[in-house]
Design a binder for these strands. Structure first.
Lengths: 150, 150
DNA sequence: GTTCGTGCAAATACTTTGCAAGTCG
DNA sequence: CGACTTGCAAAGTATTTGCACGAAC
């Protein structure tokens, strides 16, 4: 886990960015989370490490980390944008609309769709994002109950 | 085209909502567009029909139309949310990050993925949204040129 | 007449920006 | 030292809400 931070830091350096404590912290928070984090969650956790980090810095840093490809952003309509580390496999998301439980779906799920689309539409640098939203079994049953009660 | 509005209106009624001129106009604007529209674009077009419609009404109506399933919302990270009519086939989007050119991808592209996921994860009422973002051929070449100039 | 919907203005939330001070290499 | 970053406060945007008036049923 530590080596990830290390190589992330190296990557930033290569691109001519500095390794500030703030950037280090924000990156660490994102990489140590096993979930996606909203800006607020990131802010909260960073402030536990150092209460003086400002929200603007979080915004600016996320922008930076996105631009160098260390962090990915995803956005379910009607929700806050979510951030997660871009290390390891790209993957997709399955979310329960009610309890927000999230599952990661392997990228392979889409097979060679990426290449296929690039060819067919002559697109370049294509990235695919699949968002699957519905109700998990538990929430589904709760909803059924709620409705019969009315 | 007119029959769509008709049946949409009926649907609203069934759900106990009223058929106000504003709702009618907003729905019409969305259904007549062959593209996705941002809130601003919708507002602009609605105001051409009647300059006194307020922005809050557009927000409120979109929320309503989403909730009854007449309109779909999609959201590419870092962009404005986009709205389009939900009539006809569900489909996915391929967008050029630079010029915003948009292509519609048939829902069938994903095969039986929906059913597959519902079974595997015990999810219900699942909807899939695939967003493919990259650079179209033209923009890609422009970007290459810009970079060699530096 | 009662309920629902709208416009307006104000409130809220979210994000970006200018700038002076501080930090890194 | 010079270039890059940060924090703070202010400005911008985007979205939601309270409420009185008007429209629909």
């Amino acid at each position: 886990m530590h080596s990830f931070l290390q190589s992330s830091n190296d990557l930033l350096r290569q691109r001519g960015y500095r390794l500030t404590p703030q950037r280090h912290m924000i990156l660490r928070v994102i990489q140590e989370a096993d979930e996606h984090l909203s800006i607020d969650q990131i802010m909260e956790r960073v402030q536990q490490l150092n209460p003086y980090v400002s929200l603007s810095t979080v915004y600016r840093t996320l922008e930076l980390l996105k631009s160098v490809g260390l962090v990915r952003e995803s956005h379910l309509p009607g929700e806050q944008p979510l951030y997660e580390t871009a290390e390891g496999h790209a993957h997709h998301h399955l979310i329960c609309r009610r309890c927000k439980a999230t599952f990661h779906l392997d990228e392979e799920l889409l097979g060679n769709l990426n290449e296929q689309l690039q060819k067919q539409y002559h697109f370049h640098g294509l990235s695919l994002e699949l968002m699957a939203a519905g109700y998990c079994n538990e929430c589904w049953h709760k909803i059924q109950q709620e409705q019969t009660q009315e």
